[in-house]
């Protein structure tokens, strides 16, 4: 077991570094010279002095070869230093740590909501396969999956506008326990819920054909006990493995949800950085997003043998 975890970790670290290398290379070769970018932004009367620029470049280590600069960037990252924003001059780390709690709370809540709503709905749909109830749940899931957050959010707001006076429609951030979080949370959970409903349904349909389920029913075990004891447990395994994909939908969705509802999180930070071509911030946010997804995938790999002991036992795997 420990050997398995170590092997996973050893395979994981190089892939994280490689993703970082790829993103950094894109920024390095595409964005152009950061010093020039800073000077282009400066007020018009600042002279474009090549000698001065050369001096700054020398000092900042920008004359070094690509790999050396990447190494320095990684080294600084390990010390929590993401560089400074080209736009405001503030430390990127400070900007991120101010914005991260909002996104983190929202994302975690969305995951909890997803698990609580989607797993039961998927179970119901799967256990009543091809019934009208099944089609309703599945159709809703497809619709929720298809409609992007920046469409669902505004549509819901406009609908609320028909019911509430315009000042009362929630907008902005009021903390985790404020009423304002409900709407963004619902919209952010739409896609993960759709994903998990479909996963759970497919897994339930698969498990329902197993002999032990038929045996339990034949023995006269009540249906709800069959559902909770015999079906739920094996169904959770394939569902948990979707954690990485859920993370992707939440990271993508948060960008739009935060923008639509005016929440001061990482998503809005990304969009502002994008509008200002603020490279260090874009780079940092992309790295954090990729890191979250890859960490979720690693977590799934590590949890898998606990849920399904066959995964690490070579003897059992063959049967």
């Amino acid at each position: 077991m420990i050997a398995y975890i170590l092997r996973r970790l050893l395979l994981w670290i190089p892939s994280v570094v490689l993703v970082m290398l790829g993103v950094y290379a894109l920024a390095f070769y595409g964005a152009g010279d950061p010093i020039k970018l800073i000077f282009l932004r400066a007020p018009g009367d600042v002279a474009y002095d090549p000698v001065k620029i050369e001096a700054i470049r020398e000092q900042a280590g920008l004359n070094q070869p690509f790999l050396v600069q990447f190494g320095t960037y990684l080294w600084n990252l390990l010390h929590g230093n993401f560089g400074n924003s080209l736009f405001s001059g503030r430390s990127v780390w400070a900007m991120i740590s101010a914005a991260a709690p909002v996104s983190l709370m929202l994302g975690l809540m969305a995951m909890i909501v997803t698990a609580l709503v989607a797993v039961p709905l998927g179970m119901i749909a799967g256990m009543n396969q091809n019934s009208r109830l099944d089609y309703t749940i599945l159709g809703t899931a497809v619709t929720l999956w298809a409609i992007p957050a920046y469409v669902a959010g505004p549509l819901l707001m406009v609908m609320l506008l028909a019911v509430l006076p315009s000042g009362a429609v929630p907008y902005g951030w009021g903390g985790l326990f404020s009423v304002k979080i409900i709407l963004p949370l619902i919209v952010l959970s739409f896609q993960p819920i759709a994903l998990i409903i479909r996963q759970t349904r497919a897994a339930v349909i698969d498990v329902m054909t197993e002999d032990y389920v038929r045996t339990a029913r034949a023995k006269g075990v009540p249906e709800h006990v069959v559902a909770l004891r015999h079906i739920l447990r094996p169904v959770l395994t394939p569902v948990v493995t979707q954690l990485g994909l859920i993370m992707i939908t939440i990271v993508n969705g948060a960008i739009f949800v935060e923008l639509v509802f005016g929440l001061p999180g990482l998503g809005r930070l990304t969009v502002q950085a994008l509008i200002n071509s603020d490279y260090p911030v874009i780079l940092a946010v992309t790295l954090i997003g990729s890191f979250l997804v890859m960490a979720s995938n690693l977590l799934v790999d590590l949890l898998y043998p606990l849920l399904d002991p066959r995964a690490t036992d070579p003897k059992a795997a063959r049967t």
């Binding site: 993703v19 070769y29 992707i248 993508n252 960008i255 992309t286 997003g289 990729s290 997804v293």
Partner: peptide, 15 residues
């Protein structure tokens, strides 16, 4: 394994 949207953001800004 990189969130699509962020990757596009980086590529777009680089190009």
């Amino acid at each position: 394994s990189v969130p699509q949207l962020l990757l596009v953001v980086v590529i777009n800004a680089s190009l």
